[in-house]
Design a protein around this nucleic acid. Sequence first.
DNA 1: GTCTATATAGCGATAGAC
DNA 2: GTCTATCGCTATATAGAC
Lengths: 203, 203
Amino acid sequence: MLSTMSSPARSVDSVTDTPHRLLEAAAEAFADRGFHATTTRDIASRAGLSPAGVYVHFASKEELLYQLSREGHEVARDMLLAAAAGASTPTEALRAIMGRFATWHAEHFRVARIVQYEFANLTSEHRDAVLTLRKQIDAVVRDVVTAGVASGEFTVDDVPDTTLALMSMAVDVARWYDPEIKRTPEAIGAAYAELGLRLVRAS
Amino acid sequence: MLSTMSSPARSVDSVTDTPHRLLEAAAEAFADRGFHATTTRDIASRAGLSPAGVYVHFASKEELLYQLSREGHEVARDMLLAAAAGASTPTEALRAIMGRFATWHAEHFRVARIVQYEFANLTSEHRDAVLTLRKQIDAVVRDVVTAGVASGEFTVDDVPDTTLALMSMAVDVARWYDPEIKRTPEAIGAAYAELGLRLVRAS
DNA sequence: GTCTATATAGCGATAGAC
DNA sequence: GTCTATCGCTATATAGAC
């Protein structure tokens, strides 16, 4: 697994694991230059292999993209589910999921960009698989908004609209985030948690 | 000029104007498949020309991208300036600019995607020129937020953060918008104007 | 200003030695 | 499982006829 989570768990030899190195090389290249602008030679040389070395471990360039996209989506989904499950009120849940989601999009902005912007470059089978994960992610946020409306904590004009706007704010962090900036991913998460709550509060 | 504005003005012979046809062909291709995945043969054949025909009118594929990106940014900036200038209070101004911005990102989602996602594929000179336009766009929104805080109509934790979040919501419309959906760009704009106001209101 | 033909380069992926 | 060498193809861009 790529280090798309902040949890410490990882086997020590992951640095010398060639498929893992290839995935990391591909993640950097795809995020920086885009899928089509990245060459398999780029990926191979970043991972310290010859051009042919890639194909021992992955059937195609798209297969690398798919594994990155799928795992990125799964990690994001599981993170949101855990954040929502650990909260005792919709307000707390929204604060937790928005904070974690925005933080993740900053901390793992390379994988997040692949998740958000390279979707169209998957094969149709792989697009379908990822689409299922996207719907699950969407459902976590929507369910929290719905629960808040039901409990009376939130007042919104339209649940799907508000859900989408919440996601837009957090997702867009991956577009503008630059590791050079001073703000920490955690500070960004805290700010977005508060902005998210503003979107669902009565006026 | 490409039809990136909803204003009716346009010369009748724009359909037969070859550079214009090439720009429209490039806009469609870049938005659907991305800059690097688009071939100059794609663009030429969509415009009804041979592969070589492109180079009579544009020096390179990147030149087509630059003209689309620059004009898209200019139109967006001018639209926001006009919307802000026509409002008599910060509340009205924010409603106007968020509504217009979100509507534009739906109505012209192809050019908007080029504006938002193909920035990195410009040459460094062209990137610099576009960056200037981006700062102007940002300033329009930031000035409205600042004015609202000064007048007491808005209460925000942080002006740059809030400005960015407002832009994120509207910009992201270009990512998810699909002309197949039933909602009109105007309805989307109206919803986003209200969501924008929520972000700046006191709690 | 458009075409056909092509130069030049780089692509993704494979063959076969080690 | 890694390499060198290369296949077959497509890319951007140009040359020169009309």
